[in-house]
């Protein structure tokens, strides 16, 4: 019996591991290999760090990271704040229809990004309903898709709309783990809602806030579908739709330069690794406090 149990875990894991190795591990190694190669059609030659050096001279590459950074700064704080706001509201057990609201808020998370981007693209049309709405108040028309500033705002809105629900549920999970007695004793002390929020809720949610920030940052780094669909596969006004993902896709499939594209991919891996490392370190520090 012992012997068979010893073999079982490997047997159980083998289908997953096989696919994991084939579709994740090997590709990632090949991708690293490619990033040091120049690939012109069928000829592959080793070029050392040339691809990476070329990237740092390429203004589009730097612009793509800048764009992604702007997207993160413009969306993550709002996503986290709104998510905490809704989570705190939903955490009230006397609220009716909690399940309904949770489901509704979560819908954007499980909706195709292509669909989300297409609908918002329609909203943002110069003659679309947002401008029609603004027209009612004599405002606008806002050049949602043609002005770099408004174009960024337009993207922020979509990303925030799409992201809030997921983090709301995440925070709700965090809040439900909080001991109710803490709030009760705070109530007895006559603490106001704001005091309770800032002195009890926020500190207790700190690990979840940290996790959410890192997840949202990695998500932001991967932004592709929304700018790609909203700006019809172009770089958008003032190149605002040029995210790292868009750059990678275009470098691979429009410029047919897989060496450089792999170098871009690995720059993403490195940035993600650094972000995760920071989360890990900060998380550790918090625990030891």
């Amino acid at each position: 019996m012992d012997k068979s149990i010893r073999k079982t875990p490997y047997l159980f894991l083998s289908p997953f591991l096989l696919l994991f190795v084939l579709t994740i591990l090997i590709p990632i190694i090949i991708s690293l290999f490619f990033s040091f190669m120049s690939i012109q059609g069928d000829s592959i030659t080793f070029v050392g760090l040339a691809n990476f050096k070329a990237l740092f001279r390429d203004p589009m590459f730097l612009q793509s990271y800048l764009n992604v950074l702007i997207i993160m700064v413009g969306t993550i704080p709002f996503i986290i704040l709104l998510a905490i706001f809704f989570a705190v509201l939903l955490n009230n057990p006397t609220i009716k229809g909690q399940g309904f609201f949770k489901t509704v808020y979560y819908l954007p998370t499980v909706t195709s990004l292509v669909a989300v981007a297409s609908v918002f693209m329609t909203f943002y049309n110069p003659m679309g309903i947002i401008n029609s709405f603004l027209h009612l108040f004599g405002a606008g028309p806002v050049p949602w898709l043609s002005d770099p500033f408004w174009g960024r705002i337009a993207m922020f809105i979509v990303i925030i709309w799409q992201g809030v629900g997921y983090y709301t549920i995440l925070f709700l999970g965090g809040l439900q783990g909080v001991d109710k007695e803490i709030y009760e004793s705070a109530d007895i002390d006559g603490a106001s809602a704001w005091v309770k929020f800032f002195h009890i809720t926020v500190p207790l949610l700190k690990p979840v806030i940290l996790l959410s920030t890192v997840l949202a940052t990695i998500n932001g780094l991967n932004t592709f579908e929304i700018p790609n669909i909203m700006y019809s596969n172009t770089y958008g006004p003032g190149s605002i739709a040029l995210t790292v993902g868009v750059n990678l896709y275009k470098t691979s499939f429009e410029m047919i330069d897989f060496g450089k594209a792999s170098a871009i991919a690995w720059s993403m891996v490195l940035v993600s690794a650094i972000l995760s490392f920071i989360q890990f370190k900060v998380g550790k520090k918090d625990e030891t406090k």
Binding site: I24, L25, P27, I28, S31, L248, A261, A265, W266, M268
Partner: peptide, 23 residues
């Protein structure tokens, strides 16, 4: 194995796209 799986979560899908396609 578990930490490998955890590590792979932070690899952007884009990094594996081209090689997976080639395979």
């Amino acid at each position: 194995i578990f930490s490998m799986i955890m590590l792979s979560r932070m690899i952007p899908g884009f990094a594996v796209l081209i090689p997976t396609f080639l395979i």
